[in-house]
Amino acid sequence: MLLSFENVSLTIGTSGILADIDMTVAPGESVCLVGPSGCGKTSLLRLAAGVVEASSGTVNNRFGATGVVFQDPRLLPWHRTLENIALGLKSRGVGRRERLARARALASKVGLEDSHDCFPHELSGGMQQRVALARALAIEADILLLDEPFSALDVGLRAEGQDLVERLVVDQGMSALIVTHDLTEALRLAHRVVVVSGHPGRVVFEHCVGTPFHQRSPAWLYEQAGHLLRQEVVRKSFLFQRTSERMS
């Protein structure tokens, strides 16, 4: 089981989105993609999810089931919590009783045991995102693809979401490819941090995080982020982001 990008480029129309991407995610490994907005991180995730085809090169996803959590929850507004969690199971032909039982177990796991029968609009943003995470876990995903899943949430809910993902990655050894624009979030959740930058986006920097997860205190996270930003390429890609944001 392995997710690998071999010399992958993606061009949409005349604009290059990604170029010469070489990257792997091994079983049990958590890789965080960071980079300025518009550098093609999300496209990379789409390639991994198999909803977009690479223009050249090969994307190989040999993990069995792939669970995806998008930036927005993308729940079906007319389904209740449990049915939304069980969506992937239904499409795999799991019977109603069993898929609801499994959804119930997952709802408890992500802290939604009291919201089984709520429609999405009755849930807060953080709860909706947890439903989306449970939906990704329901198909017994071997790898999770997360696209800035907590970027729209406020600080408290965000930390809560990160705790959930950390438990999955650390305690259960789940493989994950996580897109984020937050260096500290990446440092907290990753075995390896990959910086993507430029037009088209390329991998400009890779950093293996050797420190065990339980030793990654907030102070350590900020220190490490500062350390990374002292690297020329990393600073450039993030400084670029700041000027472009100021311009817009």
Binding site: V51, T66, V68, F70, L76, R135
Partner: peptide, 13 residues
């Protein structure tokens, strides 16, 4: 269309 992409990802029949 975002729901359609979600359907693609979860290989909905």
């Amino acid at each position: 269309p975002r729901l359609r992409e979600m359907a693609d990802v979860y290989r909905v029949s």
